[in-house]
């Protein structure tokens, strides 16, 4: 799983590869993204490619959020599709994560 990242205004935007994040690849994603989080305190996950996320995928996002929060950083999510949003709302994670429309909006939210 190669992760595409780019930095805008000091915020690292990670494109989470699609179309699925489930128990088949959630651990891999967690491992791959860990060094990126270690380097950068301000991170945005671009979920535009993701059509389906299950509870394992959601769990990996929570790991990332807690890792960043522990070091004073933060994680924001953007470009979330409707089906993924439904899962977040189901388990009320839309109140735990800050979810924005576009990567630019997510980056701006750090200011």
């Amino acid at each position: 799983m190669a992760l595409k990242t780019h930095v805008i205004d000091g915020v690292t935007v990670v494109t989470v590869p699609g179309p699925n994040l489930d128990s088949g690849n959630a651990d891999e994603f967690r491992t791959e993204v860990a060094p990126i989080l270690a380097q950068s305190g301000k991170v945005v996950f671009d979920l535009g490619e993701l059509e389906f996320v299950d509870s394992s995928g959601l769990g990996s996002f929570l790991t990332c959020l807690r890792q960043l929060n522990a070091t004073g950083g933060d994680l924001k999510l953007c470009r979330m599709r409707k089906q993924v949003r439904t899962l977040f709302e189901l388990v009320r994670m839309h109140r735990v994560f800050e979810i924005l429309g576009t990567p630019a909006e997510a980056v701006a939210a750090f200011k």
Binding site: V91, M93, F97
Partner: peptide, 20 residues
């Protein structure tokens, strides 16, 4: 039941099934 405050990463599966 799962932790809705994000304090635990797992435990959502059964709750999700029951809601879906």
């Amino acid at each position: 039941p799962p932790a809705f405050d994000g304090s635990r990463e797992g435990g959502f599966g059964v709750y999700i099934i029951s809601q879906c």
